[in-house]
Design a protein around this nucleic acid. Sequence first.
DNA 1: ATCACTGTATTACTTCATTGATACAGTGAG
DNA 2: CTCACTGTATCAATGAAGTAATACAGTGAT
Lengths: 124, 124
Amino acid sequence: MALSFQPDKPIYLQIAAHMKREIIAGSYQPGDRLPSIRDMAMIYEVTPNTIQRALQLLEQEGILRTERTNGKFITADDALLRRLRGDVLRERAAAMTRELLAYGFSSEEILSALSDELKGADSQ
Amino acid sequence: MALSFQPDKPIYLQIAAHMKREIIAGSYQPGDRLPSIRDMAMIYEVTPNTIQRALQLLEQEGILRTERTNGKFITADDALLRRLRGDVLRERAAAMTRELLAYGFSSEEILSALSDELKGADSQ
DNA sequence: ATCACTGTATTACTTCATTGATACAGTGAG
DNA sequence: CTCACTGTATCAATGAAGTAATACAGTGAT
């Protein structure tokens, strides 16, 4: 793996975002145990502190649960994961809408631009 | 005015973004002269350097033009402004699409979420 | 008891970016 | 010429943030 990091954003944020995407996309299952902090540090080629910091963010969102001396686990709370999935979608859509309306674009323009993008993405 | 700044993003970027929105939204007209750097510094309540730095970004995009001892002006190039407007819309739509597809959302989910947001925004 | 494994906390380094102070330079009106 | 106005360049202070090093602490298998 070793995920190529963008130099302009903190690594711990990029790892947190990556993990969150994987979890929401279903690459990890509810209840799964994560690799240990030190193992993940090797995988991502960063120091353990950076991993810990990333995972703290996810734990604050309730996505992870810690067993003090045993490891960290994806929450087994299915409902929470489903809710999170919906929240992410709505929040991203809302942010984009807010921004583009501030630029003076009409609802029709925004919707049409998005349709075009999705058509392009589908055909790949 | 004095625009309340978010503490987490550099002020010069926020000012640049604000100006760009105003220009794309049509609050300034092509060819308009901007207030002097020192005047804008007073208006935004920041130091002149911060304004200069913000305006440099817009100048690099071709949105502004400088007359060395006379001031800065919105470009009179109408076509450029129209093109910029379209670019912004497409770029934002593309970024959001990329991100949400990485989360595993389907095109249908994305489109529907955006429609919902726009409906909400319209009715306000 | 010891070892190997978990996560946690503390501290410090170091780098980097943002902002501010100040000086430079050109133009045109009076 | 001088003043008042433009934008520009340079350099320093500060402050914040990210990362790394290291030590702490708990558990369970052998």
